[in-house]
Amino acid sequence: MKAIESMRSSMHIGSRAAVCLLAAGFAASTSSAAGAESILLPQDAPHYRTGDNWTYLWSDLLSGKSKTITQTVTSVHADGSASLQIGPGGGHVELTSEANVIPNEAAQHACGIALHFPLRAGTRYEADCQASGEAGTTVLRRAQCEVQGVEEIKTRAGSFSAIRIRMTGVWSPQSGVGGGPMEETLWYAPTVKRVVREEFQGRMAGKGAPATTATELVRYAVKP
């Protein structure tokens, strides 16, 4: 059970870092249009600006717990990455030039690895990472990612034309027993510069009820 709790918390950015969104009443339209894909794909990495900010709602569907987290760009670095101020409560995380949140002491549950630009439909790549769980354990993730195309996605922040990335793989604790399969889907919206919705499921050795978490964009303000 401890392994599942560690996995559940480590897989998702308490920001993104949170990151990364399955909530009742918010369904994605699968009516992707070829014209939309031609506009959005291939897609270059985002360009952040100081003051860009995003607020996410993170939910654990098994426990019913949820929390809202705001991330604001405080500085942009020469390599295109950015530093984010996390609120409420303070703390910082780093956002890579490819819109992936990386873990640090302020958001040790962050494990953002799924975006690799340009996001061309049909592109496949591997993504590995590790993150710390609440009990101090380290969880390793290894996944195969596929850029599946463009679709309209509805969130609390509005509707967006987003690029969908599907991840399938395994998670395992660095020490001890446990681990199992995992699945994750993300929707990246170029106009927002971030993932606007994320859905995750992971099982202990493929058995029992899956640990299910969701992250959804609530509001945002970004500069061109």
Rank of each mutant, 00 (worst) to 15 (best):
K2A: 12
E5K: 10
S6Q: 14
S6K: 10
S10D: 05
G14L: 08
S15Y: 13
R16H: 11
V19C: 13
C20M: 13
C20W: 13
L21C: 11
A24W: 08
A24R: 11
A24M: 10
G25Q: 10
F26N: 00
F26W: 08
S31Y: 08
S32N: 09
S32G: 14
E37C: 01
L40V: 09
L40A: 09
L41S: 15
Q43M: 09
Q43F: 06
D44K: 07
D44A: 08
H47V: 15
R49H: 15
R49M: 14
T50P: 07
N53G: 02
W54T: 06
W54Y: 08
L62R: 10
S63R: 05
T68N: 02
Q71T: 09
Q71W: 05
V73M: 08
V73A: 04
T74G: 14
S75A: 11
H77Q: 12
D79T: 04
G80I: 07
G80L: 03
A82V: 05
A82T: 02
S83R: 03
L84H: 02
L84E: 04
Q85T: 13
I86C: 03
G89T: 00
G91H: 05
V93M: 08
T96V: 11
E98K: 06
I102K: 10
N104L: 00
A106G: 15
H109Y: 11
A114V: 10
L115W: 03
H116S: 10
F117M: 00
L119A: 03
L119Q: 01
A121C: 07
A121Q: 05
R124L: 08
Q130A: 09
Q130N: 09
A131H: 04
S132C: 11
A135D: 15
T137H: 12
T138Q: 10
V139S: 12
Q144K: 15
V147H: 00
V150L: 03
E151I: 04
I153L: 01
I153F: 04
T155Y: 03
T155Q: 06
R156W: 01
A157S: 10
G158E: 06
S159V: 15
M167I: 06
G169L: 01
S172L: 13
S172K: 15
P173H: 09
V177R: 14
V177W: 10
G178M: 08
G180P: 04
G180Q: 00
P181E: 02
P181Y: 00
E183H: 01
E183F: 01
T185S: 10
A189R: 06
A189V: 07
P190M: 00
K193N: 13
V195W: 01
V195E: 01
V195C: 00
E198T: 05
E199D: 12
E199C: 02
F200D: 04
G202Q: 02
R203G: 03
R203A: 07
K207I: 14
G208M: 04
A209E: 13
P210F: 01
P210K: 00
T212H: 09
T213V: 15
T215S: 09
T215M: 02
L217W: 02
V218A: 01
K223L: 09
